[in-house]
Simulated scan of single mutants.
Amino acid sequence: MTDNASKKKQGKTRPKKSVKEAAVGYLSRRDHAEKELRQKLKNSGYRGEEIDQAIDFCQDYNWLDDVRYACIMMRNGIAKGWGELRIKQEMEVKGIASGIIDQIFEGAETDWYEHARDVAIRKFGQTAIDTPKEKAKRYRFMQYRGFNFDQIAYAFNQDEEY
């Protein structure tokens, strides 16, 4: 068995570029949360201490910033027509700390009720809800998008029940 074949059987070979180069490479393509970048570097075969040094290096140069990344995620989520709940969930999945998430949403100037109405109009137009089945369909769509019940009711001007 050749040396390369035995190395592949034993596990990943040592990456050819330095951990700092790899981290900067990932960040040059798009922003990442610290946890996400740490996981990518680990999956690439780098060790914990090296990863810590690369993370510190990137943070020192302000190339890695979870607050900035959370702001970008919020802006992108709103553009996609997502509600507050869905955006928060996506941030948590990416590994953004709950304190940062709270800070971003407290400082946000988004009116989630009006945003829900805009999303509903964009998807369904101004047509009235004429059946309970149609109401359920529209509410499910808005829930999937991350709006709460009050925001959904506001979006569809639903005060009455069927």
Rank of each mutant, 00 (worst) to 15 (best):
S6P: 00
G77E: 03
G83R: 05
D150F: 14
T131P: 04
Y154C: 03
S98P: 05
G25W: 12
K8M: 06
N62A: 05
Q151H: 05
L64Q: 06
V119H: 10
L64K: 01
K42M: 03
G125L: 04
A108R: 06
V19R: 08
E34N: 01
G125Y: 08
A128D: 11
D60I: 02
R145W: 08
Q126R: 12
R145T: 04
Y113D: 11
A128M: 09
A79Q: 14
D118R: 07
E109S: 14
G107P: 01
G45Y: 02
D130C: 08
F105Y: 05
K7V: 01
Y69S: 01
W82S: 02
M1G: 15
A128N: 07
R29C: 12
W82N: 04
G146C: 03
N157P: 08
K123E: 13
I129D: 05
Q89S: 05
Y162N: 11
V93F: 15
I101D: 07
S18I: 11
S28F: 13
E49R: 13
N76D: 15
I100A: 11
N148C: 09
Q143N: 12
Q143V: 06
T127C: 10
K12C: 06
A155S: 12
D159C: 08
A155I: 08
H32W: 01
K35I: 00
D65P: 02
I101C: 12
Y46T: 09
C58N: 02
I129C: 11
V67S: 11
F57C: 02
F141Y: 10
K7C: 00
Y46R: 07
R75F: 08
A120G: 10
W112P: 08
Y46F: 15
E34D: 00
K137R: 13
E34S: 03
S18E: 12
K40N: 10
Y113A: 04
A33N: 00
Y61C: 02
